[in-house]
Each structure stands twice: as C-alpha cells, then as structure tokens.
Design a protein around this nucleic acid. Structure first.
Length: 575
DNA sequence: GCCGTTTTCGGCCCGACTGTTTTCAGTCG
C-alpha cells in the first residue's frame, strides 16, 4: 500500500486544475481547485490530523469527495477522465508565453496539436496564423517560443538575478524624471528563485521615463511598451524579463503593494477590503459606495488603513501574515547582527588572510567573529590539522592585541566523516573556542546514515553548531538526505545551534525550515561562510531569508552579546 | 467548485497590454 501524504493531495488538485484549464472549463471552477490546494497547503495539520476536509474553508463537498476517493483507492476518477479527454503532452505547453488553456484547447481541436512536436510542426507549416483569434504575430511568437523551449530554466536562482537587479537599480537612480522607484515582485519578497524582475516608478513625466527605459543597455527584446507598463527582455548569461510600472506619485504605494504580491497575499488583502466595503486596485483603495479613491504616501499608511501594522515584503506569502500583523511583530534586522560565526581564510580554502578578514569585520562594526577554516579530513580544501590549528591560534592571539575592539574566536569547521566519526578527538576540541560540525562527503548516503552522522556530532558537547544542514545548492543539487525535522528536534534537545547559511547559493536552512525551527525553540546563527572579502556582505541576504522565516532577533544567536553566547555554549558542555 | 446574518443563486480580485478585432478575448501578473 502506497502512502499518500498531503503533498500528493495538493499535487492531485493542482493537476486537475491544469487539465480543466486545458479543457477551457469555467475559470472559477479551475480556481476553486487551486484554492482548495492552497487551503490544504496553508493548513498546518498533516494528513492524519484532518478527518473532515469540508471543514477547511475553500474545500466543499465536491473536492472533498475527490480527496476521499484518492485516499481510499490511490486513484482519482476525476483526473483519470480528464487525462482521457486531454492529451498529457499539452500540459507543459501551458508554460509557453502567450499560450493559455483556451488557445491550447483551440490548437488541439482544430489542428490536432497534442505536444511540443506537433505544435512545432503546425507552427512551421504556417497553419496557426489562419485560425480564428490567431494571426501572423501570434504564429511567429509561438514558433519562437517553441524553438527557445528548454533554453532557460523557468525560474532562476536569486543569485543569478541579483547582479542584474543591481544594474537596473543603478540605471534608475540616474534618471532625472523619476520621483521615486522601488523593486517589487518576488525579488522584493526575496524568494529563492525568480521568474522576472519588477520595478515601480513614480513620475509626472511618464513619456520621458518610458523612452529612458527603452534605452536601457542590453535590451534584447521589447515585450510591451504601453502607457503604464514597459516590459523588456535583458540579455545576459540568462535572459531576464524586467517589468516597469509607471505611475503617479500618489499611486506609488498601492501600486508597489500590488506588484510586490504575492498574488495570494493580494487576494486576501482584497477580501479584507471588501469586508469593509472597499476595493483595492493598484491605483488606490476605492469606497464601493461613493466611488471615492484613497491613496497613500507609503505602504505603511496603506496597511494602517486596514488596521494592520506594516507587513514586511518578505512575509507576504499568505502564510498567516495578515492576521498576525494586527499585532506588531518585530523581526530581525541587519542592525541586530553582532558578529559572524563562519568564515574561511588562506589557512584553508579562503582568499583572504585572517588579518584581512578581521579588518573587514571591524569595518562592519561586528563585536566578534569566528575564524572557522576546514579540518584535516577535507584535503581538497587544505583542511587544518591539530598542529596547524594551534599555530593559527598564535596568529589570532597576536591579532587580538592589534584589534582590541573585536573579539576573534579560534574556530574550526570540522568535518563529520562518512562513518560518523568527528575529525578531532574531544581533548583537542576543548582547546577550541568554537567548533562547527559539517558534512562535506558521501552525499549519497541514506537518510539513516546521514542522520547518524548529524546526531553523533550534535551529541558531542564541543560541537556548538551544525553548518549548512542540508547541503543543497539552489538550482544545482538538492543536498544530502537530511531529515530536517529530526535535526531540529535534536538541536533543541542538545542545545546545538543550526546555521542559516547566508550564501545566496545555499540559504540553508531555508526560510520555511528556520520558521519551523524557531517555533520548536531551536537557536539559529546566520553566517556568511565567507571565503573572501566580498562574500562577507552576504549577511544582508541571510538576514532577509531569516525575515522570510519570521525570525526574531532573539532566535538568532549572533545578535547576542559574546558573553551570552559563551554562556549558552557552556550550558551545552555542562549537560 | 465554493460560499453565504444583506444572498441557496450569482457572484467569485483587478486591470493593462497585445493582437485581432471593429468592441473584445486571452493572457499575464
């Protein structure tokens, strides 16, 4: 018997929605299935804790029947029927720009398009342009889309897009006709992966701004150039589409909110507005009765209008933020950070000397840092032996006298070896100020083997933190088979800190996990894992991920004083 | 398909842009 979990149910409902879309079904029916899937996702309970699905708002009798059938038989008659009516090959075609359910249904019915190959054939044969509702331009667009398929991943990791975003922002900052501007969309919410970039621009000279935007360097294609919206494709390692919304200054706050999203957050906000007789659009809040439109100077004022505190963009994912921010919730901020507990130097695989790292950390006004080079097992990274770590301590002691304003900890990022043994014995570990446990080998082990390694490390009184707990690289590899839930429980039990690695390629633990970790009472450290000068500044990105995970400063140990931190460590040793 | 102390029927979030139209549908965010 195959076990079906909540994710499987969510997938089923989404799958049904996709097929209904391709059938050209009533859009509200389609969105009802999507809403049901979302309602399940938002519900904190696991499958076994839910007995009556109709109790969940958004799930009625119909959907509940579909779910029950799926749970008892492992099949869904609804989905099976749809699969018979609609060729499966059409599903991925929904991702092509300009093609939605209705147009695909038409292509299927009139040209017998069933998959990418047949779509390509129809496009190349010039059959599309003569269809009703299509034309020369849409035929060309489809052909182009078909040929470009697979050339770019659908979503790009945020680290690929950050430099492009920085370039666009530098360009906007120089434009004279702009009153103010802001990043919006999923970049402002700081999601791990993005589809495009969005900017909101306030100006009273929209025509000039539009022309200036169309003069951006590296434009590969202009997708839209309307009165309030300019959309371009920027050429780079990956092509990234960038949308600009041009509005007046009084519309800025509501437009910014609207295009920051997320979509689900916006829907929920509009429902809240509706309940008080108002309608939200990007241009303001309309009183339904009088038609009067209210605008706001800032987003904070906008939220205040709905009796809410300012909801940080990072939290606008429809995961409880609207109700929660009826109260004030202080999240961690960059300014709370007192130090960085994970960084490398030329002693192992870093690019900077210890002294350079100390200088840079001083410039960031940190109170303390830990120098944590790799340990001897990691030969490829020039890992340090006991002997070399003792030599490194001498150098650190020398620097302590040169830089009295910052505390420098003698640390090590110690390997947890494949068999679970730690790279150093306890009597050496107790010489160190700070020991990190980390996995850098045998990524393919089973979950049980990986967890055995972690548990053994966490049970050691001298291992104070686990670095990059899942080992993932966003968009590249999924990491080792860590059971994060179990890891968090063990961290709470043993008083071991879990790392939020601020490297944008890692962000490991992820926002979702640190949120759970905080709820369970675990302590988190946000560390850059810097290997050179530039990457010490990853802290800003790490803090934003922490905010996405609703972290308060209190949860994050590197907002604490060094005294409090060492007292916390002592507790673990005294257990 | 879901929902409801204004409704068990008739709404469902809202608007811009494009392309194919001659007043609008489809797509997108």
């Amino acid at each position: 018997m195959v076990t079906i979990d909540k994710k499987d149910i969510i997938k089923l409902l989404e799958q049904i929605a996709i097929y209904l879309e391709l059938k050209g079904e009533n859009p509200f029916k389609i969105s009802a299935y999507r809403k049901a899937a979302l309602a399940l996702e938002t519900d904190q309970r696991s499958r076994n804790e839910i007995d009556d699905y109709t109790q969940i708002k958004g799930i009625g009798k119909g959907t509940a029947t579909v779910i029950e059938e799926y749970l008892t038989t492992g099949q869904s008659e609804t989905l099976r029927q749809l699969e018979q009516e609609v060729p499966a090959g059409l599903v991925p075609l929904l991702d092509l720009p300009g093609l939605g359910g209705k147009k695909l249904a038409q292509l299927y019915q009139e040209l017998n398009v069933v998959d990418l190959t047949s779509l390509k054939k129809a496009a190349q044969a010039g059959e599309i342009a003569s269809l009703k509702g299509f034309g020369q331009k849409s035929a060309e667009k489809i052909l182009k889309a078909v040929e470009e398929v697979g050339q770019r991943p659908e979503r790009l990791p945020v680290y690929e897009v950050m430099p492009i975003s920085a370039r666009v922002e530098a360009y906007l900052a120089e434009l004279p006709k702009i009153t103010r501007f802001s990043i919006a969309g999923s970049m402002r919410r700081f999601r791990e992966t993005l589809k495009d970039l969005d900017y909101i621009i306030a100006t009273d000279q929209p025509e000039q701004v539009k022309d200036a935007l169309l003069a951006l360097p590296d434009i590969k294609e202009v997708i839209a150039a309307g009165q309030t919206k300019v959309s371009v494709l920027l050429q780079g390692k990956y092509d990234v589409s960038v949308d600009f919304r041009i509005v007046t200054d009084d519309q800025f706050a509501t437009t910014l909110h609207h295009f920051t999203g997320s979509k689900d957050h916006n829907v929920a906000m509009r429902q809240r507005a509706k309940a008080q007789g108002e309608k939200i659009s990007e241009y303001g809040v309309e009183n339904v009765e009088t038609g009067e439109i209210t605008t706001f100077a800032t987003e904070a004022d906008f939220f205040k209008h709905f009796n809410l505190n300012f909801i940080p963009p990072e939290l606008r994912e429809f995961s409880g933020e609207i109700e929660a921010f009826e109260q004030e919730i202080p999240l961690i901020e960059q300014a709370d950070i007192q130090g960085d507990l994970h960084m490398h130097t030329t002693w192992s695989d870093g690019a900077q000397s210890i002294e350079e790292m100390v200088q840079l950390a001083s410039e960031l006004s940190y109170r303390y840092i830990a120098i944590t080079d790799h340990s001897k097992f990691l030969r490829v990274a020039n890992g340090l032996t006991e002997q070399r770590l003792r030599e490194q301590r001498k150098e650190i002691e020398r620097l302590r006298t040169v830089y009295p304003n910052i505390n420098i900890l003698c640390g090590v990022e110690m390997d947890i070896r494949p068999d679970g043994h730690l790279d150093f014995a306890d009597d050496f570990l107790q010489e160190m100020d700070f020991v990190i446990g980390a996995i850098h080998s045998s990524f393919n082990q089973s979950e049980a083997e990986i967890m055995k390694r972690f548990v053994h490390a966490m049970e050691n009184p001298y291992v104070k933190m686990i670095a990059h707990p899942t080992g993932r690289i966003i968009g590249k590899r999924s990491g080792y088979r860590a059971n994060v839930e179990q890891l968090i429980d063990k961290a709470v039990e043993t008083g071991t800190i879990l790392e939020l690695n601020a490297n944008p390629k890692r962000f490991d633990l992820s926002a979702d996990w640190v949120r759970i970790a905080q709820d369970k009472g675990a302590q988190i450290a946000i560390n850059t894992d810097a290997h050179n000068k530039a990457t010490l500044s990853y802290m800003t990105a790490g803090v934003r991920v922490a905010r996405r995970g609703w972290l308060k400063a209190e949860t994050v140990v590197n907002t604490w004083s060094l005294d409090r931190l060492t007292a916390f460590w002592r507790q673990k040793e005294d257990r």
